[in-house]
C-alpha cells in the first residue's frame, strides 16, 4: 500500500449556468497521505468547497466532473449514489461549517450518530449506543452518558461542532473532509476545536482535508497547502514552502492582506 491515501488528478467541475457551462474547478490535483492534513485555502468563489463536494459526489444537479479521484487506489469519480453511499460517512466523512443546519433539531444527538453508525456497521442499538458514548467522550464532551439523550439546541456552538466531529469519526474513516469547521465559532472555541482535530488525527491516523479562507488557521493545522482562486489551483506545496517562499503573486498578495496580531503596525 502506498503512502498516498487519497489522490486527486486533474479534477475539473463544470456547472451549467444560464450563460452556458462554467468550469468552477479547473484541473486540480493533490494528494493526501495517511496522518497528513492538506489545507485548501481561497477566497469566496475560489472553488474550494466545490472540490470537496465533487470528491464525495455531492455536487448540485447538472454539474459534471472529469479527472480522477482515488481513495486507496479505488476510483470514486463517476460512481453512482448507490455505489458511493457505503463510502460516504464511512471511509470518507465530512464536517461542515454550520452544525445547526447539519443536525436534525427533532432528534437527540445520540440517535443521529447512532443512525449513521448502524447504517454502515449494523449491530444492535445497545452496542451502537456504547460506540456513540465513546465517540462523544473522544471529542471531550463532558458527561457524555447524559448528553447523548439531549437535542442539538441544548448544546453550545462549540459543543455542536464536537458532536459533528464525533459523528464524522465514529466509523473510523480513512479521510476526513472539514469544510470551514471553525469559521462560525468564537476564537477561543476555535482554538479548542483545532487542537482537538490535530490530537484526534495523531491518535487515529486519519488523513484530513481542511478547507478554510483563513490562512492563519491553515498555517497552524496543515502540512501541505493548496491555494485556489476562481477555480484554478494557484499554488501547491508544503505549508512551509507556501508560507515562507510563495511562488505566485496571488499567494503573496493574500499573505500580505492578512491582518497580524503581533507585528508592529504603522500608526
Amino acid at each position: 500500500m502506498s503512502d498516498e491515501l487519497f489522490v486527486v488528478e486533474d479534477l475539473t467541475v463544470t456547472t451549467s449556468t444560464g450563460r452556458g457551462p462554467v468550469d468552477v474547478v479547473k484541473n486540480v490535483s493533490f494528494t493526501v497521505g495517511r496522518d497528513e492534513t492538506l489545507g485548501i485555502v481561497g477566497e469566496s468563489g475560489s472553488g474550494k468547497s466545490m472540490t470537496a463536494l465533487a470528491v464525495l459526489g455531492l455536487l448540485p444537479r447538472g454539474a459534471r466532473t472529469s479527472g480522477s479521484v482515488r481513495l486507496d487506489g479505488t476510483e470514486l469519480l463517476g460512481r453512482s449514489d448507490r455505489e458511493l453511499r457505503p463510502i460516504r460517512g464511512n471511509a470518507i466523512s465530512m464536517v461542515f461549517q454550520d452544525p445547526l443546519s447539519s443536525l436534525n433539531p427533532y432528534y437527540t444527538v445520540g440517535l443521529q450518530i447512532e443512525e449513521m453508525y448502524r447504517t454502515h456497521r449494523g449491530g444492535s442499538r445497545k452496542a451502537a449506543r456504547q460506540v456513540v458514548i465513546e465517540a462523544l467522550e473522544q471529542v471531550r464532551i463532558p458527561d457524555a452518558g447524559r448528553r447523548i439523550d439531549q437535542y442539538p439546541h441544548q448544546f453550545s456552538g462549540g459543543m455542536r461542532q464536537r458532536v459533528m466531529i464525533a459523528m464524522a469519526l465514529c466509523c473510523s474513516p480513512s479521510l476526513l473532509i472539514a469544510d470551514e469547521p471553525t469559521t462560525a465559532l468564537d476564537v477561543t472555541v476555535q482554538a479548542q476545536i483545532l487542537e482537538l482535530l490535530a490530537e484526534l488525527q495523531s491518535t487515529t491516523g486519519t488523513g484530513m482535508i481542511f478547507i478554510t479562507h483563513d490562512l492563519a488557521v491553515i498555517s497552524s493545522i496543515a502540512q501541505r497547502v493548496l491555494v485556489m482562486r476562481s477555480g484554478d489551483p494557484v499554488e501547491y506545496g508544503t505549508a512551509e514552502q507556501v508560507f515562507s517562499d510563495p511562488q505566485h503573486d496571488y499567494t503573496r498578495m493574500l499573505l500580505d492582506a492578512v491582518p497580524r496580531i503581533d507585528d508592529e503596525v504603522a500608526s
Partner: peptide, 22 residues
Amino acid sequence: RTLLAAVPRINPEWDAKRRQRK
C-alpha cells in the same frame, strides 16, 4: 490574555522568512 492567545497566527518563523525574501 486568553482572547489574544487564541487568535490563530501564521507560523512566525515562516512569515519572517518570507518577509526577509521580500
